[in-house]
Nucleic acid binder design. Structure first.
Length: 995
RNA sequence: CCGCCCUUAGCUCAGUAGCAGAGCACUUGGCUGAUAACCGAGAGACGGAGGUGCGAUUCCUCCCGGGCGGACCA
């Protein structure tokens, strides 16, 4: 708590012996104090209703209500109608659950950017969005529905999903608004909007028209529990233990074997076995080939358990294989050169438990040795078990040779009927078994039949792909899916070029996304789910030909624009296709068509949000020309990635000009500050805790979150802790109190329409205005470069050093004691006003509530709007104009420090600094400057008299001023005014003015 | 395993190849006409080890710690 230290300190002070009566809570002793306060009622003390404490938890909702009722966002847009456009496009958060700290960071950052761009003169619309389709919502709904789900139609389940999504849209909308984020909250974009669903299909139509869209059976990452394909962005890796098996695959020495007689003579008459290694024994029933590397050297060494057999592995790996299989006589190993290996190309081997000769439709291509250069020598045997239905590289090899993507498992990753292990008389049924159940069965079978070379209990720890939603292991499985071809019409290369043309902040993001696009496989668009937008394709019920024409998709897009994607399930097929549509294969009518059951990957949906925005062209303004995406750095593989590909396909340009990323929110121990990460760290025995944002907000409001975001360098990971918030709270109070002081000296009698910079003559006043211009110019630049923490630093320095410690202290004399309308006092007020205005406006994007509060209490110029967020940042006078005064004051302020220091012992003797008369002994070089400002030095140093000597050792001499003291302003003079006799001339005049 | 980023005082941030700065926190003095305020003073830091420089917090290499991302690892 911010106040605790303060209180403790006071209590300690009270209890300390000898601390005397100075710290006490009772009435102060009256004697002797009265004369001090004699003229108190005649000085112009600050006065303002602006409270010392923010009381943000109650004050913020009031301000929000005012903004809401006065339609502030709409008024800002109207006010900027003719201004240049700056579009920050909102990345849609997923609409389930309450918001967390990552959302808070992201949304506040965006809001600060939007507000600062607005105040820099741009029209900056902000349309928030939500990602509302997809698996997590569907799963949550299924869980909530329980057994009821069985009897429900697709339309009914989709309706439940919609309700669920919209519930959280409503919740998150309120939570985001509570952060002070201004935007078009009444008309957000939602991926479940009818027109958005139309845009998705329209984008697909463009891909189809361009020939990128195809259906293929190839291995995709498949989650057997969620029963759907997954994109690379939906995969995470976890360390798990997998069985490790070395399996011998005996070469068949039949009449056609080309290698006979071509190998080392010592191998003549020996039986040879290829040795493969795998950690996924369950894929062995799908093995169709073994692949070797074209340039590796291999060796054959005797099998210890079978005198007549030699085992073949890569030479590089022979030793590790020997170790794994319990030892081998490598001294007897015989080399097989790459050239000799070549003669083995196409050599047949005997599959350990599939006795039949071939399962390919294309003839006799399976169970042979082939070559590929993706084989590595860092693990395994250099001979790769290849199952084209269960791995991307395997698939590639299969395509080259003509092997099918054979994957005899169903949606739940269980073997289909007819799959069994058969070796001689030993037969083990696999049908119905899951891949995990199959692993030990297969290992046991291999061991029992002599094909396994290593102990059946061996396993390895490795990181393996898992589903990011259900966290379970996933499999590679070939199934028919819709894809976007990355290398059609140069899509990949054009995307890479577009990355180069985009500005990435911080710059390393460019390489990251470049490498990802460079390496990624074709985009799997199909999801075997309900809650989303259907893939708008059909199959002819007569001849099975696919129908995925662009024209048909455009037609469907129009229907979706009006009715939403529900039309896909609610309408007859004949009502979904353009009139006159016929099967291109057999000329059957659409009444014979069956519709595609899969939906579109949600990453494709959010990837076309820029298109949905462009279509929101209701007022003739192009929201689709987007300047900036601003998200967490994880979106390089997510939304930045999918948006880029979608935009390259649809309009052949990146959807953004600039992409900025922020880091993750970590706690003080460096653990990601999310509920799950913190819980995990806690379960591992680390000392940590998580406080819900709602709890913090209810107690202290959201302005501190905004300050946290504004003060922190967000491009790297950023730390959140209560301690940091408390520290920022201290600064916040300083800012608030300084503003309060400024307001107090302005509110009652200052009119900015009458009093302006023309009144300013004194050096200190000119210096402050110069400093102010400097800060304004730098802050504007910092906002432009999104360096919010720099803005924060500038504000801190301005407020603490220049305004509070220096200027307020120095100007108090004029403000309090001058006649109300004395030009010198007005000049000080002008300076205060300029400072206050600059502070309020520069702070407004960050401290949106407090700046508004200040603005409301401030005297206004004619034409000033009622909200600070409708104003612009201050303009800066010509650059460089302030250099001379800044240089002069560098010298004067150094002297001020010397004087203050020299006054320490003087003040320790119960004197005040105004009781002093000081003599300066400047070096010759500085003397002129001091003399130039001689008249105002006493006030600058807050003493009663300054003498400049001609000695030059840069020291300061302090003496008590011997003249009488003015009882009103407490400064000493050689003589006082005649009437009344105890005040100075200036104060006498001020008193006279009051009558 | 690979790649990228980060590491300056208790906290948040500056900064530079040449005595390391600010604000807050801390210790401490003062004021009581900004008072649950305000004005001073003090103490406190370049993650570690090498290297190249007359000189390194700054440039290079490696390591520790933290984060993010990638991976066909059969």
């Amino acid at each position: 708590m911010p106040h605790r230290t303060r209180w403790r300190r006071r209590q300690i002070a009270r209890g300390r012996p000898g601390s005397g009566g100075r710290v006490c809570y009772g009435p102060r002793p009256m004697s002797g104090q009265e004369s001090k306060a004699k003229y108190k009622d005649t000085v112009n003390l600050p006065e303002t209703p602006f409270p010392m404490r923010g009381d943000l938890a109650t004050r913020e909702p009031e301000i929000l209500k005012k903004w809401d009722e006065s339609k502030l966002y709409e008024r800002i847009q109207t006010a900027r109608a003719g201004a240049p456009l700056f579009v920050l496009h909102d990345g849609p958060p997923y609409s389930n659950g309450h918001i967390h700290y990552g959302h808070i960071l992201n949304k506040i950052l965006k809001d600060i950017v939007v507000k600062s761009r607005t105040m820099a003169g741009f029209r900056t619309p902000y349309v928030p969005g939500w990602d509302t389709h997809g698996l997590p919502i569907e799963q949550a709904v299924e869980r909530d529905l329980g057994p009821k789900r069985k009897g429900m139609s697709a339309a009914e389940i989709r309706a439940a999903c919609r309700d669920y999504a919209m519930k959280y849209v409503a919740i998150q909308r309120e939570e985001f608004k509570r952060l002070g984020v201004l935007g078009d909250w009444d008309q957000p974009y939602l991926t479940l909007d009818k027109t958005y669903e139309g845009a998705i299909v329209r984008a697909l139509a463009t891909f189809a028209r361009g020939g990128y869209f195809y259906r293929g059976k190839k291995p995709v990452q498949w989650c057997p529990r969620d029963r759907t394909a997954l994109a690379t962005s939906e995969i995470e890796y976890q360390d798990i233990s997998l069985p490790s098996v070395y399996v011998r695959m005996p070469l068949v020495e039949d009449a056609q074997a080309a290698w006979r007689g071509k190998l080392d003579p010592r191998l003549e008459g020996r039986r040879l076995s290829l040795v493969i290694w795998t950690t996924t024994p369950w894929t062995l029933p799908s093995n169709l080939a073994i692949v070797a590397h074209p340039t590796f050297t291999y060796v054959a060494f005797p099998n210890r358990n079978d005198a007549g057999e030699y085992l073949i592995v890569a030479r590089e790996l022979a030793e590790s294989v020997a170790t794994a299989i319990g030892g081998a006589d490598l001294a007897a190993a015989i080399e097989i050169t790459p050239e000799q290996m070549k003669t083995l190309e196409g050599a047949r081997y005997q599959h350990p438990f599939l006795p039949r000769p071939s399962i390919t439709s294309s003839g006799d291509l399976d169970f042979r040795l082939w070559f590929a250069d993706y084989v590595t020598a860092d693990a395994g045997t250099g001979l790769v078990h290849t199952a084209p239905g269960h791995g991307p590289d395997d698939y590639k090899t299969g395509m080259t040779i003509g092997l099918p993507p054979y994957a005899p498992i169903d949606d739940g990753a269980r073997y289909v009927p007819g799959i069994a292990l058969e070796t001689g008389a030993r037969r083990v049924e696999l049908a119905g078994k899951s891949t995990e159940e199959a692993n030990p069965i297969i290992v046991e079978h291999l061991a029992a039949t002599g094909f396994l070379l290593n102990p059946p209990t061996d396993n390895v720890r490795t990181s393996a792909a898992h589903c990011w939603r259900c966290k379970g292991p996933i499999v590679h499985r070939a199934t028919p899916q819709w894809f976007i071809a990355m290398d059609h019409e140069g899509l990949r290369q054009r995307s890479l070029d577009a990355i180069r043309a985009t500005k990435w902040v911080p710059p390393w993001g460019e390489e990251r996304i470049h490498a990802m696009i460079d390496n990624r496989p074709d985009w799997v668009l199909s999801r075997q789910r309900l809650w989303g937008t259907p893939i708008p394709a059909f199959y002819c019920g007569e001849c099975r030909v696919e129908h995925a024409s662009a024209d048909t998709m455009d037609h469907i897009a129009e229907i979706f624009d009006r009715e939403g994607a529900d039309a896909w399930w609610n309408r007859e097929v004949i009502d979904l296709v353009p009139p006159g549509t016929k099967c291109t294969g057999c000329n059957a009518g659409p009444d014979k068509f069956e519709r595609e059951k899969d939906i579109v990957d949600v990453w494709f949906e959010s990837g076309v949000s820029w298109l949905a925005m462009a279509r929101r062209d209701t007022d003739g303004k192009d929201y689709g020309d987007i300047d900036l995406y601003l998200e967490g750095s994880d979106q390089h593989r997510g939304w930045f990635h999918s948006s880029l590909l979608a935009a390259m396909g649809v309009k052949n340009a990146a959807p953004y000009h600039q992409v900025i990323t922020h880091g993750f929110v970590l706690d003080e121990n460096g653990i990601p500050y999310s509920k799950s990460s913190i819980a995990k760290a806690k379960s591992e025995g680390k000392k940590t805790s998580y406080i819900e944002p709602e709890t913090v907000i209810a107690k202290s409001g959201t302005e501190m979150f905004r300050l946290w975001v504004g003060a922190t360098e967000f491009r790297t990971d950023i730390t959140y802790s209560q301690k940091i918030l408390d520290g920022l709270g201290e600064w916040y109070r300083k800012l608030r109190n300084t503003a309060r002081f400024l307001l107090g000296n302005l509110a009652a009698d200052f009119d900015p329409n009458v009093h302006d910079r023309k009144l300013v003559t004194l050096g200190i006043d000119r210096y402050l205005l110069a400093r102010l211009d400097d800060v304004v110019a730098r802050a504007r630049k910092a906002y432009e470069a999104y360096e919010l923490h720099v803005v924060h630093r500038l504000l801190v320095e301005l407020v603490t050093v220049d305004v509070s410690a220096l200027y307020s202290d120095v100007a108090k004399d004029r403000l309090y004691s001058d006649p109300i309308d004395a030009p010198s006092r007005r000049a000080a007020q002008v300076v205060l006003y300029e400072c206050l205005r600059a502070i309020a406006t520069l702070a407004a994007p960050i401290l949106c509530f407090t700046a508004e509060d200040i603005w409301t209490h401030m005297p206004k110029r004619a034409g000033d709007p009622d909200s600070v967020h409708l104003t612009a940042f201050p303009e800066v006078a010509a650059e460089g104009a302030s250099a001379p005064i800044i240089a002069d004051f560098a010298i004067l302020l150094a002297w001020r420090e010397r004087v203050t220091k020299a006054l320490e012992p003087f003040r320790a003797q119960k004197n005040k600094s105004v009781d002093a008369a000081v003599t300066l002994h400047p070096a010759a070089a500085e003397r002129d400057v001091l003399v130039q400002y001689e008249a105002e030095l006493a006030d600058l140093f807050i003493v009663s008299d300054v003498t400049i000597s001609s000695a030059g050792d840069s020291t300061v001499e302090v003496a008590a001023h011997t003249g009488p003291r003015c009882e009103r302003c407490w400064k000493h003079f050689d003589t006082l005014a005649a009437d009344p006799g105890d005040v100075c001339e200036r104060c006498a005049a001020a008193l006279a003015r009051r009558k």
